[in-house]
Each structure stands twice: as C-alpha cells, then as structure tokens.
C-alpha cells in the first residue's frame, strides 16, 4: 500500500494509513528522498499514528528516512507513536536515536516551524 504524501508549504507530510510491509516502508523512504528535491522541502513529517507495530525493521527504516532526507537538506520528524508501541519498542531495545519525534501532526509542524525560525535568525 502506497503512503500518501502531501505538501504543505516547505513541508512534506507522509500520512501512513494502514499497516505497512517492509517493502512499503522502503518505498516510502525512496519516495521521500526523491520528493524532498522535487518540492524543495525543508521538513518532512512521517505520521505513524495508524501503525500498531514498530519492530526492528520499521524503526531502522524510519531512521533511514530521517538520515536520507537530512542529507537532502530536510529535517524529518516522526509523529504519532502510540503509547503501547512506545512501550514495546523500549522493551525490545529499539531507539530512534538522533531522530526528532513529536506527539502528533500539530506538534510536529510546530517543531519544524521553530527550526525554520532559528535558521532564519542565523
């Protein structure tokens, strides 16, 4: 299942709608790496609210998305990790080291706005 990716000003929003296979996740990573350039995006939000499992592969792929888009000049924020999912990740020893997270889409957008303002001030 393809993940719909919306563009809102300089931000791409990937809103995951249902469970994703490993292949779908890799497709999302590749699509975002490409779309960041095409839309000149500075921020990416990956909304995982609909995911009931974030296992080792999914976690590693989300880190991959964040690092890849960073190399393309856009900051990625992962939003919407559910409480049960967070608990299972901790028990499994999974982290999103170095990848910003936010509670939901609204907080994710606020985080990226804050980053943009800081960048403009410099």
């Amino acid at each position: 299942m393809a993940v719909p990716i919306l563009k809102q000003s300089h931000t791409l929003i990937a809103s995951i709608q249902a469970a994703l296979s490993d292949r779908d996740l890799l497709q999302l990573r590749d699509d975002l790496a490409d779309l960041v350039g095409r839309h000149r995006a500075r921020g990416v939000i990956v909304d995982v609210t609909a995911l009931d499992v974030l296992d080792s592969f999914a976690t590693r792929t989300l880190r991959g998305i964040a690092y890849t888009t960073k190399l393309r000049g856009a900051e990625t924020v992962i939003v919407g990790i559910q409480p049960e999912v967070a608990l299972a990740m901790v028990q499994l020893g999974l982290t999103l080291e170095g990848v910003p997270t936010a509670l939901d889409l609204e907080e994710g957008l606020a985080f990226l706005d804050g980053r943009a303002e800081t960048a403009d001030d410099e």
Partner: peptide, 16 residues
Amino acid sequence: NTTLTIIATAISEVAR
C-alpha cells in the same frame, strides 16, 4: 492492549 502490541511485535520479528 499493551501486551497485544508486544505479541504482534514479537511475531513480526520471528516472521522476518
């Protein structure tokens, strides 16, 4: 609910 997620995650790992 938390245990459901833990079980689903463990299944995901062994299936992979």
